[in-house]
Design a protein around this nucleic acid. Structure first.
Lengths: 142, 142
DNA sequence: CCTCCAATTGCAACTTATTTGCATTTGCAT
DNA sequence: ATGCAAATGCAAATAAGTTGCAATTGGAGG
């Protein structure tokens, strides 16, 4: 991933902080929370402020550079948006690894909603569980 | 809904606070957040402590008396679990009203996950938008 | 290369949502 | 009526994220 290019494409300034954040995120496609990300960013660019990280997570999500999901009783999680277009995720609760799925349940249900006059604006579909590697382990570090 | 009966069935003590919480929740099937619920509970049972409300929300969700969803950048929302068994929700962003749908996308995707050795433990599927009534209004009070 | 200015950052204080420890009270089984 | 685990109230603590503002800086244009 050409970080500088992706930032410029979206008219965002190329700052060391953004480079650090995207560098960390691009090194894995697992979901990570803001605090853990912040810790890792500090290793790449010591002195970075956490509000800068939070602000940029918002910015980068809104510019479609990151995917964000939120869980019950847990903070939001982020990862690099490597796929183009609409998709959903299968997320391993052991290692955080993700599988992207193209299947979208809205395709099945949209028409039924129209029948009752409901206009969908957005939706969530996420699957949690354990990947092949993490099966039989109970790490729970997500 | 027979509140006392449902509590006893789950070996939970019947307290005025729980009765108040469930009374408020059972009067509507819209999702509501903990703070708003707390305010309404105070009208029914003044003096109730907010930590009691929070603790009971957790308890009641774990005992399958309530449904909980969480949104990006917002707290969790709760409603009475009126349907038996597994189901998903369509939620109006205008008035909070919900439609229960029996359709579950896992039926479609489960087999494909098995093929790659992924063991799903739980999933989320929620649809947000505007119901017939709230269309053309931009209330955004959810 | 230099200048300028809006965008970005650092800092610290604040907010919001929720949780926890502990003493007190209470539902309910016996 | 009694005993005790469960539940509550209170206050303080925590976690996660946000905000105002002054200082800094990326990068477009000269």
């Amino acid at each position: 991933m050409d970080i500088d290019r992706e930032l410029k494409k979206r008219q965002l300034k190329v700052t060391p902080q953004r480079q650090a954040i995207l560098k960390v995120l691009s090194q894995s496609d697992a979901f990570i929370n803001a605090q853990n990300l912040y810790t890792k960013v500090l290793e790449v660019l010591p002195g970075t402020n956490f509000s800068t990280v939070y602000r940029n997570l918002d910015t980068l999500v809104s510019k479609d550079l990151l995917c964000r999901i939120s869980r019950e009783n847990g903070g939001d999680l982020y990862k690099i948006r490597s796929e183009e277009g609409h998709h959903h995720h299968v997320i391993c609760k052991g290692c955080g690894a993700t599988i992207v799925i193209e299947f979208c349940p809205m395709d099945t249900i949209r028409e039924k909603l129209e029948d009752v006059g409901f206009v969908p604006t957005d939706h969530r579909f996420e699957i949690y569980g354990y990947c092949k590697k993490c099966k039989d382990k109970s790490m729970g570090n997500i």
